[in-house]
């Protein structure tokens, strides 16, 4: 153990996502080293750390877009299945928002949001459309429903991507650097949606470089470096009084400007 993950920040919430000694290699590179992490129901956890620290990989491992070699990941008490229908079912309960939005380019905004509910949940088309429109209104792009992704700005596309995930009524949502590909003036419109979502009690795991969001919306900040969880604490504690040298060094580099 290094400086020791701070467990005091873990609340008494019911555990929803539990990672136990998860290990992963990319060739010779050990990207995830004995990761233990428990995320409670309704908790908002922000993963931060220098690039290459493994935080995106960790995020993608939780819905098995990346495989892992040892350890276990359970979601709502169920272990992650290997490939196949079981895994697909589990993924439908885990929302994922990507850095590059990944909206289905050949489908309209409305179709992007209704595809999952219709094909995976077996919802009627009219019902799925009704719900999609509500969600699109909620993220502020309701009037763009008939357009194609390429006709929207990056910020709008990312908000649609959030609506697409929400349409599945996920138990937890993963955000993999959701604002890193956005122009500066569009970052806030996406962070606003995420902050509102956090307030509704959604369980969220967010990889981001937006320290303002971490301070405002996170219940817990987890600091990762070199494939390890180095430190975890409440945002207040972490930003004012980081305990590990790695975290002090990292914060020193990003907060001086």
């Amino acid at each position: 153990m290094n400086t020791g993950p701070e467990q005091s920040a873990v609340t008494s919430r019911a555990p929803l996502v539990v990672l136990d000694k998860v290990n992963k290699h990319f060739g010779d590179l050990h990207v995830l080293k004995d990761i233990d992490l428990t995320v409670g129901e309704g908790e908002v956890v922000v993963l931060i750390g220098p690039s290459g620290s493994g935080k995106s990989t960790l995020c993608r491992t939780i819905n098995r877009l990346e495989t892992f070699e040892s350890g276990s990941i359970t979601i709502d008490g169920k272990p992650l299945p290997e490939e196949g229908k079981e895994l697909a079912r589990l993924r439908s309960d885990v929302g994922m928002v990507f850095q590059s939005f990944n909206l289905f380019a050949h489908k309209t905004i409305l179709e992007n949001v209704t595809l999952g509910p219709i094909k995976v949940r077996g919802m009627k088309k009219a019902e799925a459309e009704q719900r999609a429109k509500e969600l699109l209104d909620r993220v502020g792009v309701g009037h763009q429903a008939g357009k194609y992704p390429a006709q929207l700005s990056g910020g709008q596309q990312q908000r649609v991507a959030i609506a697409r995930s929400l349409a599945m009524d996920p138990k937890v949502m993963l955000f993999d650097e959701p604002t890193s590909a956005l122009d500066p003036e569009m970052i806030n419109e996406v962070l606003d949606v995420m902050t509102r979502l956090a307030k509704t009690g959604m369980t969220m795991i967010v990889v981001t470089h937006e320290m303002g969001f971490a301070r405002k919306a996170a219940d817990r900040v987890v600091f990762m470096a070199d494939g390890q969880l180095v430190e975890q604490a409440t945002p207040e504690e972490f930003f004012t009084n980081p305990r590990s040298e790695r975290a002090k060094d990292f914060l020193g580099k990003i907060l001086t400007h």
């Binding site: 697909a88 990944n102 289905f104 050949h106 999952g116 697409r164 599945m168």
Partner: peptide
């Protein structure tokens, strides 16, 4: 882009559905 299939799998589409709904039409 590989992200198209990843997004499809993320909302719970199976391999066949991912091909039929997202990859093959494009």
């Amino acid at each position: 882009p590989v992200g198209q299939a990843e997004a499809a799998r993320s909302i719970g589409l199976t391999f066949t559905q991912t091909l039929r709904e997202v990859v093959l039409p494009q």
